[in-house]
Design a protein around this nucleic acid. Structure first.
Lengths: 145, 145
DNA sequence: ATAATAAAAGATAAATTTGTCTTTTATTAT
DNA sequence: ATAATAAAAGACAAATTTATCTTTTATTAT
């Protein structure tokens, strides 16, 4: 198990893929996305439906339809994707899973873990989805082998 | 979902509890531990069996038996517990869940995520289990409401 | 030796996450 | 209008994680 759920991993990958492929203004179909990021097609479809409802990505049905992202969507921080899928518990939850744990009633790991959480949140907030396009374009980073 | 699996959360909590309760050299029973850290008794039993096999905690059967930790166990870093339960993927895995991702073939999030992973690992390596005892003794930190 | 105690081990079940397949709805082009 | 296209939606299934219950084994005290 990683830090993010599988669903969230697919979500981030697909968002990167869509952003990368629709910089021009065109749209990408679910089939192309799922093969492009190596994910189960229908499972990803569900995820994108959800992201679409939440305004993270845009979509149109029918011929020449597909998924895309408008300018404001591209500017969003990656944290919006993570939060839409996995919720904000990653940014707020206790490392030991204790409900009562808080600043005033901390668990043994509270302060150490808070530093981690904050770094994760900052990292995700400080990078917009579009920020990853350039390196993808240059082939410096990859979404598929 | 948090960063750690539920199993790992219970493992850390129980290790803290045992360390705290057996500083004197005595032993704690599974029932006492599970109520002390608010976890399902038999589920925790499985986890402790596993931790016992791996030398993270010690145990003896029969009357006056129970779990405890010897001096060298108390000195171990918390990372040993996490690694014993969740494996080392937390310290090495790709943030996007990509198998191929590596230093020489990175995913878009690779470098950003590496910093996070490293901080998590360092934090867990830099703290020994016994390090948490003092604050628990003083009531500054808690394992249960 | 016997009974009592407590962990170890095994079997099973519930819940959640992940994945698959089919039908429906909206949109476009003819 | 009709057919083709592609996302939306729904039903279902597999896999994994989390949880429960029972039986067995080792140890201690009597």
């Amino acid at each position: 198990m990683g830090i993010f759920s599988k669903t969230c991993e697919y979500a981030m990958r697909s968002v990167f893929f869509i952003a990368h492929r629709t910089a021009t203004g065109s749209r990408v179909g679910i089939k192309e996305i799922s093969t492009g990021i190596d994910s189960p097609e229908h499972f990803l479809a569900k995820i994108l439906q959800d992201l679409s409802k939440k305004g993270i990505v845009q979509s149109v049905k029918g011929p020449n339809g597909g998924f895309y992202m408008d300018a404001s969507a591209l500017k969003r921080p990656l944290s919006d994707v993570v939060e839409a899928v996995d919720g904000k518990s990653l940014f707020t939850g206790c490392g030991l899973g204790l409900e009562f744990c808080s600043e005033s009633n901390p668990c043994p790991l509270h302060h150490e873990f808070k530093a981690i959480r904050n770094q994760i949140q900052q990292m995700l907030q400080d990078t917009s989805i579009a920020d990853f396009n350039e390196d993808l374009n240059l082939g410096i980073t990859k979404l598929k082998k």
